[in-house]
Design a protein around this nucleic acid. Structure first.
Lengths: 131, 131
DNA sequence: AATAGATTTATACTTATTCTAAATTGAAAT
DNA sequence: ATTTCAATTTAGAATAAGTATAAATCTATT
C-alpha cells in the first residue's frame, strides 16, 4: 500500500523541491526543471507534486497566496510570511497541546491538526524600514 | 481617512455577509443577492467585498480551499474545518501570547498575527461515522 | 515479442478573481 | 436647476492556477 514508484519525472520534481532553499510554487518548480535541462509537461509537474504529497515525501503549503508552495520538510512545523517582501520562514516552536485540547472542547470537533500562517515583518525589512 | 462610502451595492453585500449563518464565498454572496432581488455585476460583488474588507467591516478567510470566504465577525478568532463535510466553525480560544513571543524570538520576525485553520471532524460526521 | 497497467504528454477546460473601458451616479460648484 | 468631476458600476475580456481528457509511451510480466 505504500509502494513508491519514482519515475524520472517524479524523481526530478522531488530533487528540485528537496534542494530548494525556499518554498517553491509549481511554477517555480517548472522553471527550475527547465534550468536543469528537463522539459516535462505542465500537468506532469502538478501530478508529480500531488503524488509526492500523497506519499508524504513533501508537503503542500497554502499560505494565503493564490499558488500553493511545496516543502520537503515533512516534520511538524508552521510558517511565517513577511508582509513586505513575502519571505517565508519556518516556525519550529510547537503549538501547545493544551490549545488543541481546548479547541476540541470548545468546538465539539475531533481535532487532527492546525495549519498556522503567522504574518509579520522579517529582520531585513525591519532594518530597511528604520531609515 | 476612515470615511466609509456605503453605496446601495456595498450595503447589500454587507447585509448578506452580516446576516449569514455560515461563511459565504463570493459566489454564495452573489446567489443570495439574487435571491433578495438584486442583480449586481460580478465584479461589483468582488469590489464590494474587497472594500468592506479594507474598511475592516468584514474579514476575508482563506481556509485552504480555492475560494475565499467572508465573515462579518471581525473580532480576533480562528476557524476549524470539518475534513468530511467541510463545515466551518469558529474557534474563540485564543492562541497563547507566549507562543507568539516564542515565534518572534525563534524567527527574528516582528510578529503581527496568526491565521490558524484547524482540521478535524465535526460532531455530526463523527456520529455518522460510528455506524 | 505480446499484453496490460501505469504514466506522460499536449491540449482543452474550469474556477476564482482581476482588469478594462464605457456608462452611470452623486455630490459640489456654478 | 445645470454643469462638472470623481467615484462607482457594469459587462465582458483577460489572467492565473490547477484539473481533466484522450492519445501516445513506457515498463514489468508472461
Amino acid at each position: 500500500m505504500k509502494t513508491i514508484n519514482l519515475t524520472t519525472q517524479r524523481q526530478a520534481v522531488y530533487d528540485v523541491v528537496r534542494e530548494a532553499e525556499d518554498h517553491p510554487t509549481a511554477a517555480d518548480v517548472m522553471n527550475r526543471l527547465v534550468e536543469r535541462g528537463h522539459s516535462f509537461a505542465y500537468g506532469t509537474v502538478y501530478n508529480s507534486l500531488r503524488y509526492l504529497t500523497e506519499k508524504e515525501m513533501i508537503r503542500e503549503l497554502k499560505l494565503g497566496e493564490a499558488a500553493s508552495r511545496y516543502d520537503a520538510r515533512t516534520d511538524d512545523h508552521q510558517h511565517i510570511v513577511c508582509e513586505i517582501c513575502g519571505k517565508v520562514g519556518e516556525v519550529m516552536t510547537p503549538m501547545p497541546e493544551e490549545w488543541m485540547t481546548r479547541v476540541a472542547e470548545e468546538t465539539g470537533y475531533e481535532v487532527h491538526e492546525a495549519h498556522i500562517v503567522v504574518e509579520g515583518v522579517c529582520a531585513e525589512c525591519r532594518t530597511k524600514r528604520k531609515k
